[in-house]
Structure formats: structure tokens, C-alpha cells
């Protein structure tokens, strides 16, 4: 039973990280029907910048929670800047190009960013300082759920609620929903579509960076390649939930995280990644619109 609880807990943690990244995929896809392949790289860059900031601050004698907050803040700012620039360079000039073009451009950007970090920093794994303190009140359940896990769950929950509020109740959220429904129409009623797309990229990047910081401090080491796998899995989660659908992305991520955790715990961890892809393929064959997505009829 305890093993089961442990696995569920780690599954939920995994799921919430996937969810943070998947939200970026799903939002971007919802608006411009593009798989932003470089999204996983934004997550990786977020983690790297948090590590760098934390490293510098540690040396200059800061400590504990102040490092976590500062590192997280700077990482999200930078990730947002990267997301914004990424869209401007690699996707905006291709707005009206055939579908394959932005996709290839995205893959190119992903390769570029990976190797940029590899060359600017290091090809090796870097150890990430554990920034999340151990809470006293978590002591009795520490064997099932650690403090870091609690922080991850709470932070991602807060981030997702904030996103929902933003999309539902603010002006820019309204503009985003309008653009998602019909870009031409949104433009006609005076929505600045280019700005909306930029905001979408920025929001997605911020969420991904939060995920990156949390994962870095939870797992304890990062390298330039972490974004690739995380990106693919988060994308799987987004498809699982129905791409373009925001609650769907969260649900899909949780399902995928739990499924993966149980599969790794009860079956074999060597084939963990195969499992995620298997889920993706099955979903696409059986229910391409995902768990919560609506089937879209293609009109000629």
C-alpha cells in the first residue's frame, strides 16, 4: 500500500510537471496550429538559468528561500524573453507558409537552442542545488511525500489556476480565446493577433520555466538534453487530453504521469519512455481528438 501511495505521489508530481509544459504546447497549438518543438528547450533554458542564478547567489552568500524565489523569478523572466524571441524569429516570418515549414523551423530551433546551451555551458550534467527547504510539518508523511513534492504540486496548481483566471477573466484572455476560435474574425473586430500570439508564447514559456526550476531542484541534476524528452512527453500529454484544450492538457498530463509512474514501478523502468510513446500512438489511433477534445471536421 505504501509503495502504491509513493508511486501515486511521484506520478502526480511527474504529471504536474508535464502539465506545466503541456499547457504551453496546447495554448500555442490552439492558436496557430503549430507544434512548438522548441518548447521543451525553453523549459531546459529555464532550468539552466535558475541553476546559474542560484549558483551565483550561493557564492555571494544568499541562502535558502530567497535564492529559490530570486532564481525562479529570473528564470521565468528569461524564459519569457526566449519564448518571445523564438516566436519572432522562427515562426512569425512563416505565418502564411505551408504547414510543414514552421514545423521544420521549430525542429531547427530546438536543435539550435540545445546546442547553444551545450556550447555556452557544458555537455555534462550539472548538479542543481536543492533549493526547496524541508518543512517540519511534512515529517510524518515524508516517506510518501517529501517537501519538494508538496512544493511542486502546490506551485503548479497555483500556476494553473492563475492561468485559468487570466484566460477567463482578463481582456487579453478574451482576445486569446477569440483568436483561437477564428483568427481572421478576431482581427476584424480589432484584436491585435500578433500581440496575442506573442503573449501566448510568453505565457507558455513562463509555465515551462516554472516546471524547469521545480524539476531541477527536485531531481538534482540537469543537462542540455532534458528538454527533449520532457517536451515529447508533455506533448503526448497535450494530445492525450485533446490538443488545444487547456483543462485537457492538465488531465492528460496527470493521466500520463500516473501511468508512467505505475508502469515504471510495477513493470520495468527500462521501457519507461517506450511506454509514453505507446500511449501516444494508441491515443492517436483510437481517439485522435483526445480525452476532452472535440473532433474537428475538416472543411474544404
Amino acid at each position: 500500500m505504501q509503495y502504491f501511495l509513493e508511486l501515486s505521489c511521484s506520478g502526480l508530481v511527474r504529471g504536474s510537471i508535464y502539465a506545466l509544459i503541456a499547457l504551453g504546447y496546447t495554448m500555442v497549438y490552439g492558436i496557430i496550429q503549430l507544434i512548438n518543438f522548441a518548447h521543451g528547450e525553453i523549459y531546459m533554458i529555464g532550468a539552466f538559468i535558475a541553476l546559474i542564478v542560484a549558483g551565483v547567489l550561493t557564492i555571494y552568500g544568499f541562502s535558502g528561500v530567497s535564492i529559490l524565489i530570486l532564481a525562479g523569478l529570473i528564470a521565468t523572466i528569461y524564459a519569457a524573453a526566449y519564448g518571445y524571441t523564438l516566436e519572432k524569429i522562427a515562426y512569425r516570418p512563416l505565418r502564411n507558409a505551408p504547414r510543414l515549414s514552421p514545423l521544420i523551423s521549430a525542429i531547427g530551433m530546438s536543435l539550435f537552442l540545445q546546442n547553444y546551451v551545450l556550447l555556452a555551458q557544458t555537455p555534462d550534467f550539472l548538479s542543481f542545488p536543492s533549493l526547496i527547504p524541508d518543512f517540519g510539518f511534512m515529517e510524518p508523511v515524508a516517506h510518501i511525500m517529501g517537501s519538494a513534492e508538496l512544493v511542486i504540486l502546490v506551485t503548479s496548481a497555483v500556476a494553473m489556476v492563475a492561468l485559468t483566471v487570466l484566460i477567463k477573466y482578463t481582456r487579453i484572455g478574451k482576445a486569446m480565446r477569440a483568436t483561437q476560435q477564428d483568427m481572421t474574425m478576431a482581427r476584424l473586430v480589432g484584436v491585435n493577433v500578433d500581440n496575442v500570439i506573442s503573449v501566448t508564447f510568453v505565457l507558455g514559456s513562463v509555465l515551462a520555466a516554472i516546471g524547469g526550476v521545480l524539476v531541477g531542484s527536485y531531481i538534482g541534476q540537469i543537462n542540455f538534453y532534458i528538454g527533449f524528452m520532457a517536451g515529447v512527453k508533455a506533448f503526448t500529454a497535450a494530445v492525450l487530453g485533446g490538443i488545444g484544450n487547456i483543462p485537457g492538457a492538465v488531465l492528460g498530463a496527470m493521466v500520463l504521469g500516473l501511468a508512467e509512474s505505475f508502469a515504471a514501478g510495477y513493470i520495468s523502468s527500462a521501457y519507461e519512455d517506450v511506454f509514453a510513446f505507446g500511449v501516444l500512438v494508441l491515443i492517436l489511433i483510437l481517439r485522435p481528438s483526445g480525452l476532452l477534445g472535440k473532433a474537428v471536421k475538416q472543411k474544404v
Binding site: Q33, I35, L100, L103, I107, V232, T236, L280, V281, L284
Partner: peptide, 24 residues
């Protein structure tokens, strides 16, 4: 399995197959 998929899904599924092949 991926006959019915559109271009972008196809990309990610083939990416998955590539990685699966290596893991196997």
C-alpha cells in the same frame, strides 16, 4: 497506425518510433 494522422502529429509519432527503436 498513423495513416490517418495529419502532418504535425505524424512528426511527433515518428519521433517517438525513432526513440523507441533505440531504447529497444
Amino acid at each position: 497506425p498513423i495513416l490517418r494522422l495529419r502532418g504535425d502529429y505524424l512528426a511527433i509519432v515518428t519521433l517517438g518510433f525513432g526513440s523507441i527503436a533505440k531504447i529497444v
